[in-house]
């Protein structure tokens, strides 16, 4: 087990180095200057800014500085938000995105699993058709449409909840719901398909022959096996959700990471874009490791190889 973890750590570091390197060179390959906005600034001022931020040094020298800083956990200063450190931006925005994302996951995962199980058990019945239709709808209606409708009905019309902004628990409800809806849809479909596959297995027939009740079969035998694809699904889902959704954060004016992510790329804020990419990379790798460890809990037949 320890050897396995050490091996995984090594692979993860390699993956991170590739990610950091690729994001550095790809971003720097984009044409344009990070200091130019809609109304251009004079070249002599721009040259001075480039010099100040070290962007006029040879690219490889900049890369060396960047890696060196990264190893010390320092992601540098944003080029767009003058004198704000990328570490500071992450420290401020990540808890917001994480709170929103985990709330969405928190209700979407149980609901999605229940929907999937119910849909599979009642296959071909009206409830199944209803849930499948709901899942298709949830997958195909973009979250900004759902979000805008929620804003309009629960905010402007009914005035039950704030339209946008962040700060109190009431502010979390609408964006978390909009974010969770797509997840419910995809989880329902995955869970339903997985359940239908498990139902055909020999051990289910055996259980039925033993005379177990249908609910015992579902909980004791089917669900446990059917959860494996969901667990696989969950690793990247959690990593991507807690690092923020651009669309939802934009629509609901939530100060999370998702907005910084997209804006930093479009405005060529190299340091912020690279820092956030590496941060997301660390999370994805960590959650994938957790998922691999979780398999052994869900299904004891899976063992961590030495």
């Amino acid at each position: 087990m320890l050897r396995y973890l050490a091996y995984r750590a090594l692979i993860s570091l390699l993956a991170l180095w590739i990610l950091a390197t690729a994001s550095f060179f790809l971003l720097r390959a984009l044409p344009g200057s990070p200091f130019q906005t809609e109304i251009p600034i004079p070249p002599e001022i721009e040259a001075h800014l480039s010099h100040y931020y070290g962007l006029d040094r040879p690219l490889l020298a900049q890369y060396a500085t960047y890696l060196d800083r990264l190893l010390h956990g320092d992601m540098g200063y944003s080029l767009k938000y003058a004198n704000r450190s990328v570490n500071g931006i992450i420290a401020e925005a990540f808890p917001v995105s994480a709170a929103l994302g985990l709330t969405a996951i928190g209700f979407a995962v149980p609901v999605g699993i229940v929907f999937g199980v119910v849909s599979a058990r009642l296959r071909g019945q009206a409830v199944d058709y209803g849930l499948v239709a709901l899942a298709v709808l949830g997958m195909s209606v973009p979250s900004f449409i759902v979000g805008a409708m929620l804003q309009y009905w629960f905010g402007v019309r009914l005035r039950w909840l704030p339209v946008a902004e962040w700060g109190s628990p009431a502010h979390v409800v609408l964006p978390a719901f909009a974010l969770g809806l797509t997840m419910i849809a995809s989880l329902t479909r995955t869970m339903r398909a997985s359940m239908l596959e498990v139902v055909e297995q020999e051990f289910v027939k055996t259980a039925r022959m033993k005379g177990l009740s249908e609910w015992q079969i579902v909980f004791r035998h089917e669900l446990r096996n059917a959860l494996i694809p969901i667990v696989t699904h969950l690793g990247p889902l959690v990593a991507f959700t807690v690092t923020g959704s651009f669309v939802i954060e934009q629509l609901f004016a939530i100060p999370g990471l998702g907005r910084y992510f997209v804006m930093s790329v479009t405005s060529l804020d190299y340091t912020t874009a690279m820092g956030l990419t590496v941060f997301l990379g660390v999370l994805v790798i960590a959650f994938n490791l957790l998922v691999d460890l979780a398999y052994t809990l869900v299904d004891p037949r899976i063992q961590i190889a030495r």
């Binding site: 808890p95 709170a99 995962v109 869900v298």
Partner: peptide
């Protein structure tokens, strides 16, 4: 195992949401 996984996620989420908020 099953119960802990299924129950842990929302519990964790609510906890973190509370902290984050």
């Amino acid at each position: 195992v099953r119960r802990s996984i299924v129950c842990l996620i929302p519990a964790l989420a609510i906890l973190l949401a509370a902290c984050g908020g």
